[in-house]
Design a protein around this nucleic acid. Sequence first.
DNA 1: TGTCCTGTTGAACACTTGTTCAAGATAGCA
DNA 2: TGCTATCTTGAACAAGTGTTCAACAGGACA
Lengths: 228, 228
Amino acid sequence: MAQAHATSAQGRRRYERHLPADRRRALIEAALRSLARSGAEGLSIRAIAAEAGVSVGLINHHFPGRMALIAEAFRHLHARLSEAVQAAVAAVPDDPAARLKAYVRANFSPPNLDPDLLHVWIVFWSLSRSVPEIRTVREETYAASLDVVESLIGKAMAAPLPPIEAQRGSTRTSAKATPRLLAIGLTALLDGLWLEWCLNPATFRPEEGIALAQAWVEGLLLQREISP
Amino acid sequence: MAQAHATSAQGRRRYERHLPADRRRALIEAALRSLARSGAEGLSIRAIAAEAGVSVGLINHHFPGRMALIAEAFRHLHARLSEAVQAAVAAVPDDPAARLKAYVRANFSPPNLDPDLLHVWIVFWSLSRSVPEIRTVREETYAASLDVVESLIGKAMAAPLPPIEAQRGSTRTSAKATPRLLAIGLTALLDGLWLEWCLNPATFRPEEGIALAQAWVEGLLLQREISP
DNA sequence: TGTCCTGTTGAACACTTGTTCAAGATAGCA
DNA sequence: TGCTATCTTGAACAAGTGTTCAACAGGACA
């Protein structure tokens, strides 16, 4: 067996040097895998180092402390998931209502629809109480998600009613709600459904969750342009 | 200073004996206080023992292990919160729609509306992945909550439409949804709102959360008796 | 007052944790 | 073929963890 990279007289080389940027990224991804695999137990330096195939000391060489790595990992995860959702939304015809529905569906599809992901997020919520660094990331990522939904809802409500719907009677029941508040509501509904489905996928089927959220969206669309 | 209970020559007595049932209950309540105060860090035997004012050894004398105590604590907490909500529902006139709305309001009021409570619940979710005993409790308590909501929704949808609403045009948009699935949806919406409000009470005001959930309920009531 | 059951204590145990840091090894450059 | 900057290792440390168990002591009873 050829030892293409062997340099030591004893045999294979002990480790491979990487550029700091590459190593940092590898550590971030190992941290996410460790959290997905083991939840809160996967938070330990040793679990992450083992997942990355490096020694425990390396983490504190590339990050000021364990929580700095974890905070970066959460930022990275949010970005990845958010990009997947927004790509799904952009892939749909440029109709505000259709895009809002695509957003709902994408939120309830892979890679979001993964019980392991919930346990990463539970750790996130747990740490956001006591670790200021993590709290900041939590609030940043939540605000970013909310902006996306708020924009989708704002456009969908500004669009004219399709003719068939416009002939129906008015069914306005709730007082005026801003797109931001409605975005908070839709996000809460999706998060709550996601939470319960991940905790116990036997409770309901993904299509049922999507149907519940789509019904919410349809109720919203029917109420547009009816405020006094 | 009178030492009403002093028996030792050295001074106050070292401890007080209790009936096992009383001590078990005190330990359960101390565990809940510890979790509320410190989140996941409050899970430790020493934190709970300190909160209860007893030694570390006592917990394993009254419970087969730490997780048995924690499981009991979650059962106890669910019962307490559930009773508070159901009392609020029962205090309202015997009208199905009014009771459903009272349920929503009670879910977004003290003692439920408490950020510390969320962090107890986050520990609950976290443990339910790896500790079978806790997973069982989680599923039991979720199912019990769902039964309550399902019953409220079933009654509200079976009731006749009030005359004013009945004259309006039909606005049915979603396919048939069972009371159980609708209960899952309402529970998810309430949980999602509760989660976000507890993580960051600055995101929205409790009344706004109640308004969002009440709007969901009103949309539901309008759609009753319209299925083919 | 004395006895005894058992609720209660806290030291001891083996283990895991995050961080530090001296020592070693790699790979690019001269 | 060195030389060197720095990436990487892993032992060491103090502080924490859950559980066990011999010994203690409270308080009801005789």
